[in-house]
Simulated scan of single mutants.
Amino acid sequence: MEGMVTTAANPTAIEAIDLIKDYGQGDTAVHALRGVNVRFEQGKFTAIMGPSGSGKSTLMHTLAGLDSATSGRIIFDGADITKMNDNQLTLLRRHKIGFIFQSFNLLPMFSAEQNILMPLTLAGEKPDRRWFRQLVETLGLKDRLNHRPNELSGGQQQRVAIARALIAKPSLVFADEPTGNLDSVSSAEVLSFLKRSVKELGQTIIMVTHDAVAASYADRAIVFADGRIVADVPHPNAEQMNELLMAERERATRAAI
């Protein structure tokens, strides 16, 4: 399955070509990504799964320009981000990439509205009020805008974090275990909103998750093991993803014996 490319009408949001990431050198080197080839479509929700240490988080961090590649190319918005300097990468992340984390990273002294607008405030830019209204209505936050984070549930805080990630209209959003700190009801709520933001707002989302149920909300799921793609599944369901992950864990256990 390595190197499998999906054929679809949607344009490419971001693409990794022969991507390699090594940590350390010589006998102690860790090969986190081993020649990965993968393309992500615009306007799609993709989940990346795999056991701990499989390379899924490394792929996300490398695609987002948070970590450098050892070799290979990453094509985003017509440019190879592996050739960009720190200033170029900072501007790219500020204007074209949004992030949603497991820990919501909201500023406790500010209201939900101030937290949502924070990326624009820091960049000295004015918000598009129509887009802001559309976001808060889609995310069900209209009546919570004056509340501070400690007055919101976990699910509401994560929805504020999603709105903050989308406010600058990034062309791509990375979500790193976005439901990791939430109960099952809040998780379903947040995943439904992520799915809606793809369908209704035309967003492109790449989500790293260890949760097969979370992956089932995506349009596509990629399974990682030992720095390689071992499965690329359209329209995933939870049972199917659980089976793939269990098979991969068993294979890793046998290999270690």
Rank of each mutant, 00 (worst) to 15 (best):
R164T: 01
R148P: 05
R148M: 12
Q157Y: 10
H147Y: 12
V136I: 08
V160K: 04
Q157L: 07
Q156S: 10
R148H: 13
E151T: 13
E151C: 13
S153A: 04
A168N: 14
Q134L: 12
V160S: 01
A165R: 03
H147G: 11
A163Q: 09
E137L: 12
Q134N: 13
Q156P: 10
L141Y: 00
R159G: 02
N146G: 15
P149Q: 07
N150Q: 14
K142T: 15
L166A: 04
E151K: 13
Q157I: 02
L139S: 01
K142E: 15
L141T: 04
E137C: 11
A163S: 08
Q157W: 06
Q157N: 07
R164C: 00
A163E: 02
A168G: 14
Q158D: 06
A168W: 13
I167S: 05
V136P: 02
K142R: 14
G140Y: 07
Q157V: 09
Q134D: 13
E151L: 13
L139V: 02
L166G: 05
V160C: 01
L145V: 03
Q156V: 05
Q156M: 05
D143L: 12
T138F: 09
I167R: 03
E137R: 13
E137I: 12
H147P: 12
L152W: 05
R164L: 05
V136A: 04
A163K: 00
I167T: 03
Q134Y: 10
S153L: 02
A165S: 08
Q158M: 04
L145N: 01
L145W: 08
I167G: 06
G154M: 08
Q158E: 04
A161T: 08
K142C: 14
N146R: 14
L166P: 01
L135H: 04
R164G: 04
V136H: 04
N146E: 15
